[in-house]
Amino acid sequence: MIEYALKRIVSGLLLVAGLMIVTFFLVRLSPGNPAAIAFDPTRSVDAMSRLENAWGLDKPLLVQFGAWISSIFHGDFGVSYANHRTVVSILKETVPNTLALTLPALFFQLLFGIALGVMQILNVNSWIDRLTSISTLVLYAVPSFWIGILLIMLFSQKLGWLPSSQMISFTANDLPFWSQMGDRIAHAFLPVSTMVLASLGITSRYIRNGLAGIMDQTFIMAARAQGFGHKEIVMRHALKNTLVPVITITGQHIPALISSSVIIELVFSWPGMGRLMINSAFARDYPVIIACTFLMSLFVVLGTLIADLISAMVDPRIQTGRI
C-alpha cells in the first residue's frame, strides 16, 4: 500500500510540475504584452519599458523561467500585474469562495446522483428508469452556463426568489449572523444547483450502470434464491459493492467541477478563482494565471489521488493492477 501511495504521489507531483512548466511557456508565448495592457497611454513609452523591466519581461525567456522556478520554491508566486498585490493574498480571498461552490456541489451531486441511480435500479426498465435516464442524459448534454442562465431567468428574474449574482447582498453586513448566513446560502443556491444539475447526469448514470452490472452477478442471484426481495438486494447487497465506483466517480468529478466553476463563476459573478483566472487571462496577468493553474491542477491531482488511495484501501486488487 505504501509503495502504491508513493508511486501515485510522485506521479501526481510530476504531473503538476509538468503542467506548471507548460503553462509558463504557453502564457508567455501567447500574443499580447502585459506591460502594454497595463500601460497608461498618456505616459511616455519609457514608462512601458520600465514596467517590462520591473516585471522581468525584457529578459530572455529561459532567464525568466529560472527566476520563476526559484521564486516558486520559496513559495512566492509574485505580484499581480493588474492588481499590484501579491498573488498569494489574492488567492487567499478567492480560493475559499471557489471551494464554497465546489464542495457543496460535489456533496449534493453525489447525494442526488446516488439516490437517482438507486431509484432507477429499484424501478429497473420501468418508465421511471427510462424517464430518469433521458432527463439526466439531457442535463449531461447541455452546457452548464445555459442551465445557469435558465435558472437565473426563472428563479431570479421571473419569480424573484433568489439573487442572480455575487456572494452576498450589499446590505448583508448589517444583518444578524443567521440572516447573513441565509443571505450567503441564497446567493450560493443557484450556482451550486447549476453545478449539481450539470454533473448529476454522469453520476446517476454511473451509479445506475454500476448497480446494473452488480445485479447480474452470482451473489445477487444467490441472494434472490435465498428469498430476499429486489429492494433488500439493491440496498443490502448491491449498494455495498458500488463503494469503489462511487469513490472513483468522486475523484473523477473533482476536475470537472473545478473546470465548470470557471464558467459558473462568470455567469453568477462569483468572486472565485475561476473568475479571477478569466480576468487574469484577458489582462495577461501571468503570475496570477500560473498560480491559478497550479492550484487548480493541485486540487485535481489531490482529488484523484485521495480517491485512488481510498479505492485501493477498500479493494486491495487495485494496488496490484489486477482490476
Binding site: 452477478q217 452470482t218 451473489f219 434464491a225 435465498q226 455495498k240
Partner: peptide, 28 residues
C-alpha cells in the same frame, strides 16, 4: 423461497464480497 434453495458453481462469487461470513450466515 424457504422450500427451495440453491448452491451455485462458483462458491466465492455466490457470497457478497463485502460481507463477513458471520454476516452472510446471519442473513438467511
Amino acid at each position: 423461497r424457504g422450500q427451495c434453495q440453491a448452491i451455485f458453481q462458483d462458491p466465492k462469487a455466490s457470497l457478497s464480497p463485502k460481507m463477513t461470513i458471520r454476516e452472510l450466515l446471519r442473513e438467511p
